[in-house]
Amino acid sequence: MSKALEMDRASAVMAYDYDVMKEDFAHAGSASSDIKKKCREIGLDKEIIRRIAVMTYEAEINIVIHSEGGVITVMLMSDRIEIWAVDKGPGIEDVELAMTAGYSTAKTSAREMGFGAGMGLPNMKKCCDEFVIESAKGESTRIKMVIRL
């Protein structure tokens, strides 16, 4: 499958990569917390910072619960913030269904920890100005989220 989504790192003033390991619940949230600090330093509006934190956090949790691990990249640009979540598979069979609020394929282990309520992807979409998801069974899932400043 060809990748329609291409990351434009060259346009970013700063790009931060966060490795997220599968089933690593203990560290889920560390990328979100770290990126929030950087956003405070560049003086973004508090509401925008909150949205970025929520999107990053949900992406982290999704990679931890559903994937074989992946990377979250946050790119700070002069006119926008881009957050990318790219995992190593196993891919989403029905993307449209996965985007439905409340739909979840999370394992019991994740649900027992209070995750996997099926709100992750819808939440991410709600927080950003542009949301693109690209996935198929057996492929990696790639999500691009943009907040325009």
Binding site: V13, M14, K38, E41, I42, L44, L76, S78, L149
Partner: peptide, 9 residues
């Protein structure tokens, strides 16, 4: 903002 971003980098 732009100066802050530059400082961050």
């Amino acid at each position: 903002f732009k100066t802050a971003l530059e400082k961050l980098s």
